[in-house]
Design a protein around this nucleic acid. Sequence first.
DNA 1: AGTCTATTGTAGCCTATGCAACAATCATGA
DNA 2: TCATGATTGTTGCATAGGCTACAATAGACT
Lengths: 151, 151
Amino acid sequence: MRNTGPEDDSYIGYMLSDVARLIRTIFDRRVRDIGLTRAQWLVLTRVYRRPGVSQTELAEMLEIDRASAGRMIDRMERNGWVERRPDRTDRRINRLHLTDEARKVHAAMWAIAESTVDDALSPLSATEREQYAELTAKVKGRLQNLAGAVP
Amino acid sequence: MRNTGPEDDSYIGYMLSDVARLIRTIFDRRVRDIGLTRAQWLVLTRVYRRPGVSQTELAEMLEIDRASAGRMIDRMERNGWVERRPDRTDRRINRLHLTDEARKVHAAMWAIAESTVDDALSPLSATEREQYAELTAKVKGRLQNLAGAVP
DNA sequence: AGTCTATTGTAGCCTATGCAACAATCATGA
DNA sequence: TCATGATTGTTGCATAGGCTACAATAGACT
C-alpha cells in the first residue's frame, strides 16, 4: 500500500465502498423491472432468510428505526407481500412471514442477484474467486468483532 | 463456490455488502464524535476530492436528487463548511468549495477513516492485502463497465 | 397477588428525500 | 438576430425516515 492519501482513487477503502455501491446500483436497476424498490427487496431477503422474525429484530437487521420498520411492514402487508402473525406466547410480538406471491418474487430476485454477482466476478479466475471469498470472509469476521465491541 | 442459495451466509454477494456496511457503520460511529453525520462526510469527501464541482455533478456522485443535493448544500453553507462560487462563464452553475474550517474537519475525518480501514484489514498479511486490493480493483473495473453500459 | 421495570409495536412531530414544475441561462441553428 | 430546445438550480408536494412518548404486555421481585 504505497499511497494512502484522500486523493488516491485506488485506496482500498474507497474501492471497497465503490464495489458495494456499484453492485447495489446495478442490482437496483435490474430488479426494478420486476417492480421492487431497494427498501422492499431488503425486507424480502431478510424475512426470507429468517421466517417468523419479529419487527424489532427486522429493524435491527436493517439498521433502521422500529417505527420505520413498522410502517414499511404496513405498506408491504397492504400490498399482500408479508403477513403479521401473533406470537404463541408473547402477545406483544408480531411474527413476520412472506406470502406465496412474495416467495415467487423472491425467487426471481435471487436469480437476478446471482447473475449480477457472477457478472461482477467475471474477470476473476476460479482460483482468484476462492481467494477473494476467503479474504473477504476474514475481513468480515474482523469487522463483526469491531462492531460488536463497544466503540 | 459450492453453495449459492439465499440461505448461505458465506455467499460472496452477501459478504461483499456486509463488509461495506460494517465499515460504514463503524466509521459512522467513530466520526460522530467530531460532529459529522453520514450525509455530511459524504459531501465533504467528494468536494475535497473535486474542488469546484457543480451541484449537479455532486448529486450524480452521491446518487441523490439534484434538489436534495441543493438543500444539503444550503445547510452546509449555513454551517460555514462549503461555499457556492459562480462559474466564470456559465451563470447557471454554482461551483462548490470547502472552507478552511471544513478542510480541518476533513483532515480529522481522514485520520479516522484510515485507522478504521487498517483495523478492518488487520487480520490480513501484507501479501494478502496486496492480493485483496488487486482483486477488488479488478472487480471494481468490471462493475464500472457494467454501470456505464446501458442495462 | 401486587409492584416495578423492561420490551414491543404504534402515533405524532420534525427532518430529509425524490419527483414534478418552474425561471434563468446557455447552445444550436434557421 | 432570435426562436427553439437543453441544462442548472430552486420550490412545492407527497413520501419515508428518525426520535420521542405512549399503551399493552411480559418478567422479576416482594
